[in-house]
């Protein structure tokens, strides 16, 4: 039973509960950790549950997702509800479009709160408990490692016809003739010591970028993804199987979860 249910279930005990040590048991490090996040502080004031965010949320139209619900759970500061949220698919449904932000009459920003929740979920390994959360391995290995290797979150090689079939046959043609097509378009790729699209960023600049990623906690966050996945799937080998399956089939659900 969560604190919230306890309180709701027995209103006579409301004040006595607060007067006892129970409150300290429930005052978790997780909630405190969340409240330390500057993005949470900026994104979460007080929610009056008006629904203005959910009304225009693209994710709320296709998923069992509601930004208002997320704000509400955070607002309770209930540890168990928070853990359930961090383990669920919900926090990964947000498309980060920020449609919720300009409308909120209390100046909240659920999209920002979501980012704080996701980082918390990754740091504590909860992300690996949900199907959508486990996609974080791909995010880490594509966006994250691309940045460290090339200085870009995405590279031309990522937009494969297999993973982006909607781009059609002309894209397949382009993909087969990538270098020539880019030159034809006057946007040659992988040039060294030169400005331009998809250039090779000089090594001294890449070094600076990697130092920044290390000093500011990005490396740690990325490592937490690998660790969390290893813990959930049982071994590094299974993590590689999970990855290989996705690269080959473009669908993480084809990997059979053992538990």
């Amino acid at each position: 039973m969560t604190l919230f249910e306890t309180v709701l279930g027995d209103s006579d005990n409301y004040f006595s509960i607060f007067n006892t040590a129970i409150i300290f048991i429930y005052m978790s490090k997780l909630v405190d950790e969340l409240k330390q996040d500057i993005q949470y502080q900026h994104g979460m004031n007080a929610c009056l549950n008006c629904g203005i965010c959910t009304a225009v949320c693209p994710a709320a139209e296709v998923y069992d997702y509601s930004p208002r619900e997320v704000m509400n759970i955070c607002q309770t500061e209930d540890e168990e509800w928070l853990i359930d949220l961090l383990k669920s698919d919900k926090i990964w449904f947000c498309g980060q479009c920020y449609s919720c932000k300009p409308r909120c009459p209390r100046g909240n920003s659920t999209a920002d709160v979501i980012l704080a929740l996701r980082r918390l979920s990754v740091r504590h390994g909860y992300f690996a408990e949900s199907e959508k959360g486990r996609q974080q391995l791909f995010a880490k290995r594509v966006f994250g490692e691309n940045m460290l290797k090339r200085g870009y979150t995405l590279t031309a090689e990522n937009i494969t016809p297999e993973h982006f079939p909607e781009l059609g046959e002309n894209w397949e043609y382009y993909f087969e003739h990538m270098k020539e097509m880019r030159e034809w378009w006057d946007v040659p790729m992988d040039k060294e010591n030169s400005a331009g699209s998809h250039r090779i960023i000089p090594e001294k600049d890449m070094d600076e970028l990697r130092k920044i990623y290390k000093a500011t906690g990005a490396m740690e966050l990325m490592e937490a993804v690998e660790k969390g996945m290893e813990k959930k799937l049982g071994s590094k080998k299974e993590v590689e199987k999970f990855w290989d399956n996705w690269v080959e089939t473009a669908d993480s659900r084809n990997y059979e979860m053992k538990h």
Binding site: I52, C53, S66
Partner: peptide, 26 residues
Amino acid sequence: GRLSEASEKMDGSLLLRLEDTLTAKP
């Protein structure tokens, strides 16, 4: 539910977007 946005349709009627917060449905 608080009105989030209104848009005009061709016949001059208005399309309102809100969440019915009591049933939790946009």
